[in-house]
Design a protein around this nucleic acid. Sequence first.
DNA 1: TGTACATCAGTGAACGCGCGTTCACTGATGTAC
DNA 2: TGTACATCAGTGAACGCGCGTTCACTGATGTAC
Lengths: 208, 208
Amino acid sequence: MSGRRRKAKSYHHGDLREALIAATDKILSTRGVEGFSLRDVARRAGVSPAAPAHHFGSAAGLLTEVATRAFKDFTQALRAGAERGGEDPGERLRGQGVAYVRFALSQPGRYSLMFRRDLLLPDDPHLRAASHEAYGELEAAIRRVLEMSREQSLNRAAQAAIIGAWAIVHGFASLALDGKLAPFVGAQALHGSLEDLLPDVLANYRPG
Amino acid sequence: MSGRRRKAKSYHHGDLREALIAATDKILSTRGVEGFSLRDVARRAGVSPAAPAHHFGSAAGLLTEVATRAFKDFTQALRAGAERGGEDPGERLRGQGVAYVRFALSQPGRYSLMFRRDLLLPDDPHLRAASHEAYGELEAAIRRVLEMSREQSLNRAAQAAIIGAWAIVHGFASLALDGKLAPFVGAQALHGSLEDLLPDVLANYRPG
DNA sequence: TGTACATCAGTGAACGCGCGTTCACTGATGTAC
DNA sequence: TGTACATCAGTGAACGCGCGTTCACTGATGTAC
């Protein structure tokens, strides 16, 4: 059944859909979001510039699929980061924060794409679901810190706590990626020492 | 003397240099950074597409001048924000933070440009000086909180405090501008209610 | 006060660029009988 | 088992787009004598 599908290898291409996604990820990791072009993706997949439209409709369609997968990986990373914090709510939050920044700094192209509404189909249901799930991890970590159950609706303090936690990790990652924190790392390897400093930064954020 | 200069009105243009800067600011405020093009700026100034090169060398040159001015305004805004906090170091820091976010949300195009290394001449000495001065305001506010004199070199805790303060306001502004905080403001006017929440967010950041 | 000349701001046409998408098509595969 | 046909993935040429920059130039102004 699905074995049939997999066996197929070069009628026309084999699995162009996945090849296009892989090529896009490759571009994102080597040249960043700005380096992406649909024609380049097609070129790398060894296919004509019109071929991608067949699978994704448009460039935005392809990027939306790539961003959706990135969000899923991101969610996993956040979850694992929180788990590393054990039972203590504060430790879980900080563990998640470290995972957040690590993801952004190690995969800047994919991370940036996740925030580029203008390049995506922002109403795509899969994309929305995947991004909402990532947000859910953040909210859950804050709920633990504030000792709120999943049922309680978010009061003002909880909203502020969530936004602040998100802001500090997103801000840290963005500043680092934009090279604004370079003065702090002197001649040393950039991400290494920045990541060393991160726990100290997060320790200053204490909601509640 | 300089009256001579100002009297001049239409030899060729009068003051094309300023007209180009004004046109760029206009584009930034209405269409954002992505909406900028050198040809469009020339069009708005009523001048041929080759004219700007005469004054700024290149598109990056023009944007660098615009960004430099934006940094100067930004520095003033941060200073005024801190002053609003009076004598209390914590209040000064929060006042500065509010000013930071207000600047970003009210002038998103200029604010975004300030972070677009790829569009600027990052080694331009005026740009560097202006951006360094803005950073200086932030550092000074943190020094007060930590009771450090201007002479003391920054230890690890101080570096973390600075980076965290910067990250939380930059992150807040970026998330807001990317529309990521929309769920929190429901049907209400976006920036109004977001800015209301900001002090609560900043209150959770307590360095030292 | 008049003239010759240098300066310099702005012209406008042309350059080459790569882009996303469209279109009518081809040709290999899968399927019904 | 063989044939006719439908499906559908991929082709490749062409579309129009606006961009930043270049180039040889023009024509108004400022300046020296």
